[in-house]
Structures are given as C-alpha cells and as structure tokens.
C-alpha cells in the first residue's frame, strides 16, 4: 500500500519541491529524502517523464568548478497540475481520516 501511494504522490512531491525554487537532481533527492524514502534511480526517469508532460523545463547553469549543472523549473502547466494534485490529495486524506475516525469511534463505543 505504502509503495503504491508513494509512486502516485512522488510526482506531486517533486513538483511541490520545485514550486519552492528551481533545483537540480541531486538536491531534489536530498530534499525529498529528508522526509521520505526515495530511490535515487527513480529520479532521472521521473524527471524525464515530467519533462515529457511539459510540467517542468530545464536550463543549464555554468558553475565555477567543472561542467554546467542542469536545473529544473516548473512551467505554468506544471503549477496548474500541482494545484490540482494538491486538491485531490487533500480530499483523499480527509476522506481517509473521516473513515478512520468513524471506525475509531465505533471501536471505542464497543469497548465501553
């Protein structure tokens, strides 16, 4: 259950991280792995998928030391998508919570 949920919401988490500011692959993995378990191998195929959907675009930034670095930034479409995903997520969470609370209330009622 947890894995499937994670797969569905990983797109949203990446978009949310990018909404806070443009970022590069390694940094994105670090941001996400602060609060959740992320497989590093997932990141590039995922970023390519988001690019194919035109939710993110990339640009290169020259660095003082060594080759340039690829930054990802949200497109307008990506922002719209993020808002939609967040709404759906909130609805889903509140639905699940109310079911859990109802079930918990019933259990308590039976216990007393």
């Amino acid at each position: 259950m947890k894995t499937q949920l994670k797969k569905g919401t990983l797109d949203m988490c990446v978009l949310a991280a990018l909404a806070a500011g443009d970022s590069y692959a390694y940094e994105l993995v670090s941001i996400l792995s602060r609060s959740m378990e992320v497989s590093e191998g997932t990141m590039y195929p995922l970023m390519r998928r988001l690019q194919a959907e035109a939710w993110v675009s990339t640009y290169l930034v020259e660095s003082a030391s060594g080759p340039s670095r690829k930054y990802y930034t949200l497109t307008a479409e990506g922002r719209r998508q993020l808002v939609l995903m967040q709404q759906e997520w909130q609805e889903f969470v509140s639905d699940v919570n109310s079911v859990l609370q109802l079930a918990a209330g019933q259990t308590k009622g039976e216990a007393s």
Partner: peptide, 16 residues
C-alpha cells in the same frame, strides 16, 4: 544528455 545527467549526479554525490 542522459550520460551528462548521471555524471552530474556522481559529481554531486562525491561532493557530498
């Protein structure tokens, strides 16, 4: 492009 992505990732990982 893909290879450059992974090389970049290695550089960042090594720097960390």
């Amino acid at each position: 492009d893909i290879v450059a992505d992974y090389q970049e990732y290695f550089r960042d990982g090594l720097a960390a």
